[in-house]
Design a protein around this nucleic acid. Structure first.
Lengths: 140, 140
DNA sequence: CAGGCTAAGTTAGTTAGGCTAAGTATCATG
DNA sequence: CATGATACTTAGCCTAACTAACTTAGCCTG
């Protein structure tokens, strides 16, 4: 039973917990939190409505509402309105938000690069091959 | 530059965010939170002191203290004392805690197994190969 | 052996980030 | 044009992280 999904699942479970810790360290001390960073990332291509953002980040609408409140107070995003439908709010990055996003992304990439540099070539190669599978995992 | 750590880091970063969402769904609705589950897991082999637990889970001592408070109120762990040093508290699983841990572990494994079953054999194989590398990532 | 330092935990207070329930404003429709 | 649906927001309640400040216990040194 080498391909037993249960056995594999146990290992994946253990690794998941491990990655949570890694992520915590990757994000520690940065000027935006992990979730804020993720939301800023969603806004990079252009304005989005609240409902879209909430769905994309798998949270309820009120959660995203509060999240955007904080980002707005910080001056990183702005709430606009949709001329076609006055109920929807079009959230977009401010210039400062765009700058901040880039800076944080740089820092995160740099941190992860350092971690990855500690691996062997074979390990990095294995990782590269497995990433698509990992990416597929959530999208059941 | 196919092996460029920076490029790989970007992909890893994206996948990490994805896995956070997966983990959220995996844990949703279970009788203990993700962190509580992790702490219970640490206690399975035997009693541990607060400091050890805090370090292992990469949190400050007060955070673990509160965490253990809740688990103690729920009857899942018990605080004992070290006869050799009256300052240290030896935290251990109660019988109920042990039962709960097993149940939650089952549920998590089952959930992940279902996700994994949706992958192809090749993808599962790739995942299995990459897991050791992922596990190594945090331990810089 | 008294005083002071260090170590282990706890408590209090703040913030982020989830949730549900309830409220408001706008749109669409019978 | 009244009524229901849609898009958000607000309020209130949790978990979970942090720092700062406190207590208690052990250790060491003059």
């Amino acid at each position: 039973m080498r391909d037993d999904p249960t056995e594999l699942a146990e290992q994946v479970s253990a690794v998941l917990r491990h990655l949570v810790l890694l992520l915590r360290r990757t994000v520690a001390g940065q000027p935006v939190t992990s979730q804020q960073y993720a939301v800023l990332g969603s806004l990079e291509p252009g304005p989005r409505r609240m409902t879209e953002l909430a769905e994309e980040h798998a949270v309820q609408l009120p959660t995203m509402s509060v999240q955007i409140n904080r980002l707005e107070e910080a001056g990183l995003v702005a709430r606009g309105s949709d001329p076609a439908d006055a109920r929807v709010r079009a959230v977009e990055l401010t210039d400062e938000g765009r700058v901040r996003l880039r800076a944080v992304r740089q820092a995160r990439i740099a941190h992860l690069s350092r971690e990855l540099a500690a691996l062997s070539d074979d390990e990095r190669a294995a990782l590269a091959v497995a990433l698509p599978a990992l990416a597929k995992l959530g999208r059941t």
